[in-house]
Design a protein around this nucleic acid. Structure first.
Length: 131
DNA sequence: GTCTTGATTGTTGCG
DNA sequence: CGCAACAATCAAGAC
């Protein structure tokens, strides 16, 4: 899964009408999206807020350690958490989703500012260093 | 580095 | 020029 967004990208997830799904004719492949993306990490780029799963992880992590004091590595927790995560009811997860969504709302603002600044020229201060 | 999943963003391609 | 859709990258927390 890459982006089963709940709030955003609803249109994307829901996809477009079957008519526009493919080319006007009958192209098997929608778009040969062979694109290499240089991981240009911008210092002003806002970090991604923890997702619902991460929030659950934080809570589950504490509980899991109490129930499994032997387990210290987060790796095992991740697996157990992921497995339990799928078993959880939507109502239980929605609580984390709501929290994550709220955080993303704030993050979205930061992104807007970041992108806006980017369009301007990503220069909020003079940087001696440049490429 | 591991390990999970979710979310975000960016790029591309057609209309 | 703009939207639509996908693809890749990244987010953390203990050891």
């Amino acid at each position: 899964m890459r982006s089963p967004s709940f709030t955003r990208r609803a249109s994307c997830t829901g996809r477009t009408p079957p008519d526009h799904s493919r080319c006007s004719h009958n192209c098997p492949k929608l778009k040969p999206r062979v694109k290499k993306k240089p991981p240009k990490q911008d210092p002003k780029k806002p970090k991604k807020p923890p997702t619902a799963f991460f929030y659950f992880l934080d809570d589950f992590r504490k509980i899991f350690k109490e129930q499994n004091p032997d387990v210290k590595s987060m790796r095992d927790i991740g697996k157990a958490c992921g497995e339990k995560w799928k078993t959880m009811s939507f109502e239980e997860k929605v609580a984390y989703y709501d929290r994550a969504t709220d955080k993303r709302a704030e993050f979205d603002k930061a992104m807007s500012d970041y992108i806006k600044r980017r369009e301007i020229g990503e220069e909020e201060s003079e940087e001696s260093d440049e490429e």
